[in-house]
Each structure stands twice: as structure tokens, then as C-alpha cells.
Design a protein around this nucleic acid. Sequence first.
DNA 1: AGTTGGACCTGACTGC
DNA 2: TGCAGTCAGGTCCAAC
Length: 276
Amino acid sequence: MPELPEAETICRQLAKQVISKTINAIFTGDNRILRHPKTPASVRRLLKGRRISDVYRRGKAVIILLDNNYIMIIRLGMSGTLKVESAEAPFDKHTHLRLLLDNGEELRFRDPRKFGGVTIRKGTDVDLTPEFCHCGPEPLSAKYDPAYLEKALKGRKAQLGVILMDQRIVAGIGKIYSDEICFLAGIRPTRAAGSLKKAEYLALAKATVEVIERAIGDRGTSAKDNVYIDAYGLLGGFRPAVYQRTGEPCVKCGEPIRRTSLTGGRGLHWCPKCQK
DNA sequence: AGTTGGACCTGACTGC
DNA sequence: TGCAGTCAGGTCCAAC
């Protein structure tokens, strides 16, 4: 499922293909993925004839900046993909948005599970939009350091593994990397987030940066039942140490990986020996 | 305010 | 073989 490294990979690939292209036509599929505005007519009005001036990432979202000072926010949900293809290439029923570019190619948003969506807002600063005005710092920014973490997590009783996925605390982390960061930091994701010692906040901050940088280097993660592919249709190369490895031996000590259930079939994965 | 848990959605998988 | 049931999870929302 696309988290920060997956979204970053897609952004870097898309940037090369769509920046400075003009959107000549807009075709929609299932309109439920249109979050704001909600109608195809409004989306067409805002996008038609616009030139794409930039593509970048914020958290897990792909941000497309338009020359009319509007921002398109594309959330990939858990099964969303973005691809540039020839307008002649076939597309299936899960392709919900197609933007025809002036070079005869189409930027296509496909999302079978429809957890993703497209939002268009006025402005040039995504952090001022309702979608991101409460979003936490990027984990690879200077703002995200041990002192920030300690302050943000102080007094919090929720499990660390859950808090790390809270986009208001830190942007871009989901299930895979929450598990992986806790493992690398040697801290159980089931611990109350506010119970960490100073050295542990330091370890957590360091582990976050290391895991995210490594995952970006590997172009993201494609887990067992995971449908993530990048903008070139390739699978990610990151191999999780604990995520979805319940019962399998820990890569460091061989102890079977444990899984703690959360609500809705979700779970935290961790090594009972390596993580305290 | 912080925390918990259900709903959304569908392909892939499991079990009878 | 076929069909019902289960699982996965990002985000939003309701309820304690």
C-alpha cells in the first residue's frame, strides 16, 4: 500500500513525464474518487487547458501544481496507481481519471478499492489546504527530530505503532513502515507512545529516517498480498523485516515474529526478543 | 482531547 | 468446481 516511499517513487517518475505538459481533456470513471469538487463538470472546468507546473509529494499524497494556481491532491489510498500511458492504450473499469496531455499521452489514476481520491484546491501551498493544514512534519525534514518526537508523544497513551501512523504527528507513515521503524529502533510498537525514554525517542527518530531513506532507495515495498506498483509498472524492492512476517524467524535473532491485533483485522508486527 | 472501532471497497485467498 | 466467508488497510466519522 502506498506510503511515503511509494508516493515519492511515483512522484519522481511522473515529474519527468508530465511537468510542462498541458491537460487537453479530462475523462472520469467512478465519480466516488472525486473528493472535491465532486462532479466531473467542475473537475473538467478546473483542469481543462491547464499546464502542469510541478509534481511533488506531501505525506502519502501526490501533489500536482497547475498554472492557474490550483493544486491537485491525489491520494493513492491502498490500491491507487498513477501511470502515464498512450491515449490509445486500453484501460479497465478501475481507471477512474484520465488526463489527456498535449503529447498524446494520458496521466491515468487507477484504484480498484477506491480508498484513494482526487481533490482540487485553490492556492499554491498544499499545507494551507483543509487536507493538509493539520499534517505533521515530513520525516526527512529538519523539523522531525528527537525533541519534536518527545514533545509530540508526551502523555500519549495510545500504542506507538498506532501513533506513528497518525498523519498529524508525522507525515507519510502507514502500516509497513510503522512496523519497520519500531523494529529498527528496538522498541515494541505496543508500548504507550508517551512511555519512551529519551534515548528511545532518539532511536525512533534515527530509525524513521533510516527506514524511509532505504525504502525510497528500493522504490518502496510490494508485500505478499500487496498490489503496489510504481509509475513504470514495477514492483518495489524493499523487503520488510517484520511486516506481514508473523511466525517467521526474526532476521536478527531468529525468534518468531509476533503479531498484536488492532481493530478491523489490522495488526502490529514485532520481535519479542529484539524489541523492548 | 484523546482514543477506539466501524465503514468504505474489491481482489485474493481459504475452507467446505 | 463453486461459492460463501475472510482478510487487508488509509482515511473519515461516530461514540465513548
